[in-house]
């Protein structure tokens, strides 16, 4: 049995088959992603052609009359997600710093486990808790809001409990564990030599922590964006506490709607094709936004890994030494 230069012998077909076989399945995954895009484009064509860009500027969502304006949904989605993120970010960062820098050793594992547990609770359970526990609590808060605040546009309207505030709170609670975990990984990846350098210069513990956060800032932004992406796509918990009212409102007390929520509520009731197309168009935009944000955040986190690469030390040109 002679060995060819490449070392292949009798079973020369096994490895190429292996490669092609597994590769074909791998391509399937790409196909699924593209397939989703294709489906969304295809099944929203009617609506896109009929309404064009005004779809996203119109406020009226009246399926019965055939009027489809999706502005309230994008408004509600962005409002709730941004608010949730503002609430969640400091808490998530605080947890990440605590777990990676301040936590006593014995507490680390159990706490990390609890954080993971929080992240694993299904959305529907958050929704259930939201309807029966959080919304009444928010209602109590709304009823007891001082009169001066209630006159501002942010706190106006009847105290229903369900509304933007409840939705933002639930979203914040849901986003915190995930963002905290990613941020913690980023902080853990800061090289020890950076901290040592800071300490050797006389830094206190907090100055060293600030340096670590500064070092990981790109990755942390990525983590926050990932959390944002999650919030944008969150469906069940939101639809159970936001009130499902397609209106553009500034008030935190007002019941509003989001893109994901309207899909959950009205998809099965879409009687005619145009209605369905309009809904799928909303799904299309949701898809594009979340994929864009996820892509951007992964890029940021990837870039963080790259800047950590050690610079080459062997130089052939003596000048710059």
């Amino acid at each position: 049995m002679a060995l060819s230069p490449t070392g292949r012998h009798r079973a020369g077909w096994a490895d190429p088959l292996f490669r092609v076989g597994t590769g074909a399945v791998a391509v399937l995954v790409i196909a699924v992603v593209l397939g989703i895009l294709v489906v969304l484009l295809n099944d929203s064509m009617l609506s896109v052609r009929k309404f064009g860009l005004s779809f996203w500027r119109t406020r009226t969502w009246d399926p019965v009359a055939g009027e489809f304006g999706a502005l309230p949904f994008i408004w509600g989605t962005l409002y709730s997600s941004v608010l949730a993120l503002l609430l969640a970010m400091p808490v998530a960062l605080g947890i990440a710093i605590f777990l990676s820098e301040l936590c006593p050793r014995w507490l680390r594992q159990p706490l990390a486990f609890l954080t993971e547990l929080l992240a694993a609770i299904p959305s529907i359970v958050y929704g259930l808790w939201g309807i029966f526990v959080l919304a009444p609590a928010v209602r109590w808060l709304e009823v007891h809001t001082p009169e001066a605040l209630r006159r501002t546009p942010f706190f106006s309207g009847p105290p229903l409990g369900v509304g933007m505030l409840a939705a933002a709170l639930v979203l914040a609670v849901m986003v915190i564990p995930f963002t905290a975990t990613v941020a913690r990984e980023i902080l853990k990846a800061v090289p020890v030599s950076q901290r040592e350098a800071a300490y050797a210069l006389g830094a206190t513990r907090w100055e060293a922590i600030r340096l670590a956060v500064h070092y990981g800032r790109i990755g942390i932004v990525g983590a926050v964006m990932l959390g944002f992406g999650r919030a944008l796509g969150e469906t069940m918990a939101v639809t159970m506490v936001i009130g499902n009212n397609p209106q553009v409102a500034l008030s935190l007390f007002a019941p509003q709607h989001t893109m994901a929520a309207v899909l959950a509520n009205e998809f099965t009731e879409a009687a005619d094709t145009l209605y369905l197309n309009a809904l799928v168009e909303i799904g299309l935009v949701l898809f594009i936004i979340t994929v864009a944000i996820n892509g951007l955040s992964r890029l940021l986190i990837w870039r963080m890994d790259r800047t950590r690469a050690r610079p080459t030390v062997i130089k052939t040109v003596p000048l710059a030494a």
């Binding site: 090289p191 030599s193 950076q194 040592e196 350098a197 800071a198 300490y199 050797a200 210069l201 006389g202 830094a203 206190t204 100055e207 340096l211 500064h214 070092y215 800047t307």
Partner: peptide, 29 residues
């Protein structure tokens, strides 16, 4: 640690500007 300074085997500049690196110790002081 301010009175006794240290230089490490593997250079570990902070991901900041040259200026910010040099004055870091003074700033935190």
């Amino acid at each position: 640690r301010r009175r006794v300074g240290m230089v490490f085997q593997k250079s570990n500049p902070f991901p900041k500007s040259i200026y910010d690196n040099v004055v870091y110790g003074l700033r935190i002081a």
